[in-house]
Design a binder for these strands. Structure first.
Length: 218
DNA sequence: GACCAGGCACATC
DNA sequence: GATGTGCATGGT
């Protein structure tokens, strides 16, 4: 039986079409992007990543060897650049020390174990960890972000007090465990959030989900 | 010039 | 465990 969440997904997909996420040419680039995009507009992150590419340091060992000062300079457009330099280097230390710099080796670790390992890195919280797991490693985890909470709360699917793990469990209990589906769904939620559900944006009332059945909690 | 953006850690109570 | 704060750039 299809749940209301599946119907929402279908409605979003019919409206927006495939989103082709995550923008990035490699698992490493996706991981870097996941850290740089924390509380930051993607266009700023894209500038930072372009700088890293231009310097040919979008590679674990080379980026680590670059050092903090130069890294900070290159990622400056993404904001919080001193903080994010530290976070990137923490991530790099994990990749280099535990996997010899190989994201391919990292991908082979089982989902629950890899999630805990990512969460143990200072600067990688639940959303960043899950984004890396889903978009860089194709692991079936549902990524929850500010848009997901705001939209699902507005449509009375979750309560205001719901925390990250609550929202994630809500979604994963109602959807088939499918990385492809989770990938597209999260991307569609972000697309919807950007276009229709910005804070205090009256356009929210014409969003494609506005007439969705609010009471259906199946 | 104010507000916002694909969070997270840390201090304090 | 809840709440408040620092982190910083660039677009609207």
């Amino acid at each position: 039986m299809r749940t209301s969440l599946q119907k929402i997904y279908e409605r979003l997909f019919a409206h927006f079409g495939p989103q082709h996420w995550w923008p990035g040419d490699s698992a490493f680039e996706i991981g870097v992007g996941a850290i740089l995009t924390q509380n930051t507009n993607w266009s700023n992150v894209a500038r930072a990543i372009a700088n890293l590419k231009k310097e040919h340091v979008l590679h674990p060992a080379r980026l680590y060897a670059l050092g903090s000062r130069k890294t900070a300079q290159l990622i400056k457009p993404s904001g919080y650049y001193r903080l994010k330099t530290r976070r990137l280097r923490n991530f790099l230390q994990l990749i280099l020390s535990a996997y010899g710099g190989s994201l391919t080796r990292m991908k082979h670790v089982a989902l629950p174990e890899l999630r805990l390992e990512l969460l143990s890195v200072n600067g990688i919280g639940p959303e960043t960890a899950d984004s890396i797991l889903l978009y860089a490693f194709d692991k079936p985890v549902f990524v929850v972000d500010a848009y997901t909470k705001r939209i699902f709360e507005r449509h009375h699917l979750i309560c205001e007090e719901a925390r990250y793990d609550d929202v994630q469990a809500y979604c994963m209990e109602r959807l088939p465990k499918n990385a492809r589906l989770f990938n597209e769904f999260h991307a569609l939620i972000v697309r919807l959030g950007k276009e229709y559900c910005l804070k205090n944006n009256p356009k929210c009332r014409i969003c494609p989900l506005y007439n969705e059945n609010h009471r259906d909690n199946s």
